[in-house]
């Protein structure tokens, strides 16, 4: 038996030649992630009369490779809020564990978990800001949907720098370019949220997911959708983009090996 721990589990020197000890170096400059690796794309959400609806597709891309096609990017918190994650999937899993431990801690309270979506957003933005200040950011852009302290529908976003931004309908990633204009057309600023029904909101999200699948090359036609109302959170994890029509693709010019 060899009693030197640094040799354990390594290729034997007498067979493979001596091991390059520079791999064992523990000193040197600390390095941090400077770009995400496995990523999720857009999250889209809309406020409606009495709640919020939120959707995200189930793809985790490894660069341009569609690496995982069954990733749940909507995270329900305390059956009253939903966090939708865009960006790095491993950082999403880390934040999921943070939220899990908060949920457990809060449930020790006699009156149960009383953190609402607004509290959750404040917390997440502080986590993001702390990590960006350590030059080791959590590479995500999240949407938090639920209710605020007064029981009004709440929707807001937090990004990897700790910025927060709020609007009646929002989207992260490519959705910010492709879905938000659709939502603005369907639900113009002057139309009050009270006018928007749950069905309107869900239909709008379905439309957005379709357009995103058409035009965002890092997206998938399978998605999760969650509807948050006073009665709780209703999540559907295996939705599919309906009534796809690729007829428009014929008319696209300027890419590939077309001659005319």
């Amino acid at each position: 038996m060899n009693h030197l721990p640094e040799i354990w589990g390594r290729p034997r020197n007498d067979i493979y030649g001596s091991y390059n000890p520079s791999y064992l170096k523990t000193s040197g400059p600390i390095t941090h992630t400077s770009s995400p690796t496995v990523t999720g794309t857009s999250v889209v959400a809309v406020k409606f009369n009495g709640g919020v609806a939120i959707a995200a597709d189930k793809l985790a891309s490894y660069g341009s490779l569609a690496r995982f096609t069954d990733v749940k990017r909507l995270r329900v918190f305390a059956n009253s809020s939903v966090v939708g994650f865009g960006g790095d999937v491993s950082d999403m899993q880390y934040i999921d564990r943070l939220l899990e431990s908060i949920d457990i801690r809060e449930h020790y309270s006699t009156h149960g978990n009383m953190l609402n979506a607004k509290n959750l957003l404040t917390y997440l933005s502080k986590v993001f800001y702390k990590r960006r200040s350590q030059f080791n950011p959590l590479w995500n852009h999240v949407l938090v949907a639920g209710f605020d302290g007064n029981g009004a529908p709440f929707l807001s976003s937090a990004d990897l720098l700790g910025n927060t931004f709020s609007a009646p309908h929002m989207a992260t990633g490519f959705g910010a370019h492709l879905a938000v204009p659709i939502l603005r057309r369907l639900f113009p600023e002057e139309r009050p949220i009270e006018d928007i029904t749950k069905d309107n909101a869900v239909a709008a999200l379905q439309e957005c997911m379709k357009v995103l699948f058409y035009r965002d090359a890092r997206s998938l036609d399978e998605y999760s959708i969650a509807v948050i109302t006073k009665d709780g959170v209703e999540v559907k994890e295996d939705e599919k983009v309906q009534a796809q029509s690729w007829a428009f693709a014929e008319a696209i010019r300027g890419y590939g090996a077309q001659t005319a």
């Binding site: 309270s109 006699t110 009156h111 009383m114 953190l115 609402n116 607004k118 509290n119 404040t122 917390y123 502080k126 302290g149």
Partner: peptide
Amino acid sequence: RMTYGRPIPPDR
């Protein structure tokens, strides 16, 4: 109040 933006529950 800083991290969650809420008054701490007294039982906590």
